[in-house]
Simulated assay, not measured.
Amino acid sequence: MNWTLEVVPVPVTDMDRSKEFYADKVGFGVDLDDEVAPGVRIIQMTPPGSRCSIALLQGMPPAPGTKPMAPGTLQGLQICVTDIEAARGELVERGVDASPVRHLGETGWAEGKGGTWNSFMTFEDPDGNGWVVQEAPSELSER
């Protein structure tokens, strides 16, 4: 049986501000923006090339057995790109405060690109949810 990661909820305070950030600044596609039940709004957005989406939720009760997340508490969600310098350039050009590209060196984090799988940058959404972007080998995107 396949288990696929499809949707990750991202806790936010302002749905429209977050939609604008993820669509216009980060470049995610808007798949859905709808009131699915009275008082329940869902905005589902997908990064280019991904099968996994994020969901911004308003008025949705937590699933049974789960606890709600406060805005800004989602940290370390990771996205992979094949050219981290180009990705950073796009984010900065669109107004995202993306960190410099870094890699893990012998004494901790160091500036610049590292070897295969060892180039990272970070950014936060308007609520402080923290994202990690990692460079992956381009041959993986051809699968």
Rank of each mutant, 00 (worst) to 15 (best):
T46R: 15
P47H: 09
P48Q: 13
P48D: 09
P48A: 14
P48W: 12
C52L: 07
I54N: 02
Q58P: 01
G59R: 03
G59V: 02
P61W: 01
P61G: 01
A63G: 04
G65M: 08
K67D: 10
P68T: 02
M69G: 02
A70E: 14
A70K: 14
P71I: 08
P71Y: 06
P71E: 06
G72V: 04
G72Y: 01
T73Y: 04
G76L: 03
Q78K: 14
Q78V: 15
Q78P: 09
C80A: 15
T82R: 07
E85S: 12
A86W: 03
A86S: 10
R88A: 05
R88K: 06
G89T: 03
V92G: 03
D97G: 02
A98M: 06
A98W: 05
A98E: 08
A98Y: 06
S99W: 00
S99V: 03
P100A: 01
V101G: 07
H103S: 11
L104W: 09
G108F: 01
W109I: 08
W109H: 07
W109P: 01
A110G: 09
E111I: 08
G112I: 11
G112N: 09
K113M: 07
K113R: 14
G114A: 08
G115W: 15
G115Y: 14
G115K: 14
T116M: 12
W117D: 15
W117L: 10
W117I: 06
M121V: 10
M121R: 00
E124Q: 15
E124D: 14
P126I: 02
G128T: 12
G128S: 10
